[in-house]
């Protein structure tokens, strides 16, 4: 009896484990490997912004002298601005590639465009540039025609 149960267990285990391989790898295209430096930009901005917040708090609790505060503030402001500029140019390039965004006016400044695109990515709707099908989520490929977005 237990042996039979064990056999069933073994078959079940093998079936569950082999199932993804038998179904093949078509349905889920592996995510394209990101450039390692691509992630650095946003991270650098976040670090600079967090640093700006922190030095403000440290000065308020008396841990940081005013001179040090000013020096660090100008430095991290520059860093944050530099990171923002990089981000903006990337967003502008992406916007040019994607064409006009629905609901967004082309006269928006790059900052607003970025915010709008982020909003769209988070919850709004987008449409495939090739076949015009409504897109779900914010994948890199259209589910209808498979075009790269």
């Amino acid at each position: 009896m237990q042996l039979l149960l064990g056999l069933l267990l073994a078959l079940l285990a093998v079936a569950v484990v082999l199932d993804p391989i038998l179904r093949g790898r078509a349905p889920a295209p592996g995510p394209a490997p990101r450039e390692p430096d691509e992630a650095r930009g946003p991270q650098r901005k976040e670090l600079a912004l967090a640093a700006l917040k922190e030095i403000e708090f440290d000065r308020a609790t008396g841990k940081l002298s005013d001179a040090d505060y000013e020096r660090m503030r100008s430095r991290y402001t520059e860093e944050a601005l530099a990171a923002i500029r990089v981000e903006d140019s990337a967003a502008a390039a992406a916007a040019a590639r994607d064409g006009p965004l629905p609901g967004g006016s082309p006269t928006l400044d790059p900052v607003e465009a970025l915010i709008a695109s982020a909003r769209t990515a988070a919850g709004g709707r987008r449409f495939c540039t090739e076949c015009g099908a409504p897109l779900e989520g914010s994948g890199r490929f259209c589910v209808e025609c498979g075009a790269r977005l």
Binding site: K53, T77, I84
Partner: peptide, 30 residues
């Protein structure tokens, strides 16, 4: 090397960029 004299506000930044920075900072909870 830290810049010898603090450059006041970051040199060369446009008002628009500084406004953007201010908003980004507000976004971060503190």
């Amino acid at each position: 090397k830290p810049s010898p004299e603090p450059a006041g506000e970051a040199a060369g930044a446009t008002a628009q960029e500084l406004e953007r920075l201010r908003r980004e900072l507000e976004r971060i909870e503190s």
